[in-house]
Design a protein around this nucleic acid. Structure first.
Lengths: 342, 342
DNA sequence: AAAGCAGATGGTAGCGCTACCCATGACGCC
DNA sequence: GGCGTCATGGGTAGCGCTACCATCTGCTTT
């Protein structure tokens, strides 16, 4: 005779306690909680009463082990402080908060290798779904996603070859539309300023370039970039560099709004008239762009909506109702403001 | 005879596979992985070889169930998009990324009830540690934290009565120092502008009030607040309100930098000279405050460091090495800039 | 030399839950 | 009346891992 191991759980009630109290089998309790429709009204009430009385909460770890599926959404973003991803995360969070799914966060720091490592770590946990930023996974990451055995949503961008599903918009078009707008209102020597040139930034640059070439205005010297992480400070510095390189600059398309703000402040400081001498266009349309003086033209991107929709699609897929169209382009919107109002 | 249930796990190698391949018992594999020191060099190598060959990765759910402890840090923040908490989160994440701990995120939306609900949900999972923002938990939340059976770190603030440990700084002092600075450089009719008056904002306001009263300058009409979430846009609007209410206003202490930026932009738009006519002080010292024109005085808060230290303290507590002093005040720093340079 | 002890390894029995299969009774159909 | 079908409920056997002993070696202690 071995004495039973003392309750390591510290005395929390288990499903067996509930079953005993309700006078039913443990399985029936389990079913009543997960598929109420399959249990008679009568027992359901009795079980609910026992649950309430004992304050029973199912152990997610035991549940995950037994069902080989954790109620966890794995979310991989390249940055936590970049407000763009913070808003995607908020969208994901809000859409999940009245379900029982938990969120497990991974920060790839814009590194493909780190993304691989995180997918390795997430895998054995058997998440219910994976949401990853971007469409430029390494071959290894892609294989990990394909064999994860759960719905996968790539977010922030759209592309031709989804692992499973995608929600985003075209960064190339965003860059192109921004540049076309500046050309249309009369700017000619339009610079591109970008930091942290991740794949999305590269595509915005490509869109800018396409527009400039189509108008016969492209000049490689107009491009000023750095792999350094983006910041308002950096925007100022890159703008100074750009101006030193091309003194005839009459506009800038900034890779994001932080950069744009840095440019705007530097124009104030150097008494450069905006939009008269220099036009400014940003990207993402953060709240402050509308309030800035002068208000700054930007491309509004549906970050929160991307987060929400990615969860909706993943939940539908879990429920077996895969969307007809696995790739959803949520588009973007050019907001013309004072900074390009010539 | 029942046939064994087919491997639901989809054929991932288990600890038993590794044990068989290495010619040892399963428990020895388990130990080799978790407490290498307790296994002989020889076996350790053999086991490592088997692990590598099979690509074995332990199942965290099974581990959590068997050991009644999940390798999860529960993190509760009131907002995901507020860059202050995003930076705390980044600090937490960075400090945890080379351990095997995972992060489970909870967003309380500044709601005590939601915090209670999330703690209820986190509890049964038996997290290794809990990190929660703020010190104003409801009695229920406090009890949940006290009975969680794991280290708890309250972050962002310090106070007299920690649940377990605390890392932060004094918001009251921050508000006081900011106001004292403005008084010292000669401002007299100094307004307080604040949005989303959470407990930390309230304490900053209290600090401001203390300084103003000490200087005999306090006037309730100088205070303009709203429970609405903070934004740059809102900063502009509140400043307009404040100015309409008190036309003789000669300075503002803003509850945070977003508000301060809104005030700055509105000053530009209305051609109000900064710092001559109006002085501006922000709070948190985001990157952009230094770059703004004019650059904006602010209180630098150690957000990232708070995240890092909270994890370090929790890890130490898990390892049984509780810090001598459970409450750590990381302080803050006044950064005087052009916006108050009279 | 017997006893004691520490270090290394293994076996057994769960952790709390659910997948799988089976039992039962009510009902409808031929 | 026999037989399938459906709805409802339960029993058994794990999921993959680790806590808790037990065992076995080799060495020190007295």
């Amino acid at each position: 005779m071995t004495k039973p191991r003392s309750r390591r759980g510290g005395g929390r009630p288990t499903i067996a306690d509930v079953a005993r109290k309700a006078g039913v089998g443990a399985i029936t309790v389990s079913r009543a909680l997960r598929e109420p429709g399959r249990v008679s009204e009568d027992l359901r009430r009795k079980i609910q009463a026992a649950v309430d009385e004992l304050g029973y909460l199912p152990d997610p770890n035991a549940r995950a082990l037994a069902s080989a599926r954790a109620e966890v959404f794995g979310v991989l973003v390249p940055s936590l402080t970049n407000s763009v991803f913070a808003e995607v995360l908020r969208g994901i969070y809000d859409s999940l908060s009245d379900s029982s799914y938990r969120i497990q966060l991974g920060n790839t720091h814009y590194s493909g290798l780190e993304e691989e490592r995180l997918l390795q770590v997430f895998g054995p946990q058997r998440p219910a779904a994976l949401i990853v930023a971007g469409i430029d996974q390494t071959p290894t990451s892609r294989r990990l996603l394909e064999t994860a055995g759960c719905p996968v949503v790539q977010v922030m961008e759209t592309g031709p070859d989804p692992v499973d599903m995608m929600v985003g918009f075209s960064h190339f078009d965003g860059g192109r539309v921004a540049a076309e707008h500046m050309i249309e209102v009369g700017y000619r020597r339009i610079g591109f300023i970008g930091a942290r040139m991740d794949p999305r930034s590269q595509r915005r640059l490509a869109g800018y370039r396409a527009a400039m070439e189509a108008a016969g205005l492209f000049d490689a010297r107009l491009i000023t970039t750095t792999p350094v992480p983006s910041s308002v400070t950096l925007g100022r510095e890159l703008f100074r560099d750009a101006l030193a390189k091309v003194p005839t600059l009459d506009g800038v398309f900034c890779n994001n709004d932080d950069i744009a703000l840095g440019v705007l402040f530097e124009c104030h400081r150097a008494s450069i008239a905006v939009p008269k001498t220099i036009g400014i266009t940003g990207f993402n349309d953060l709240d402050m762009m509308e309030v800035a003086f002068p208000s700054v033209t930007s491309i509004r991107t549906p970050r929160y909506e991307i987060g929400r929709l990615s969860v909706a699609m993943a939940l539908a897929a879990i429920a077996g109702k895969r969307p007809q169209e696995p790739v959803v382009d949520l588009g973007f919107e050019l907001r013309c403001r004072e900074s390009t109002a010539r």
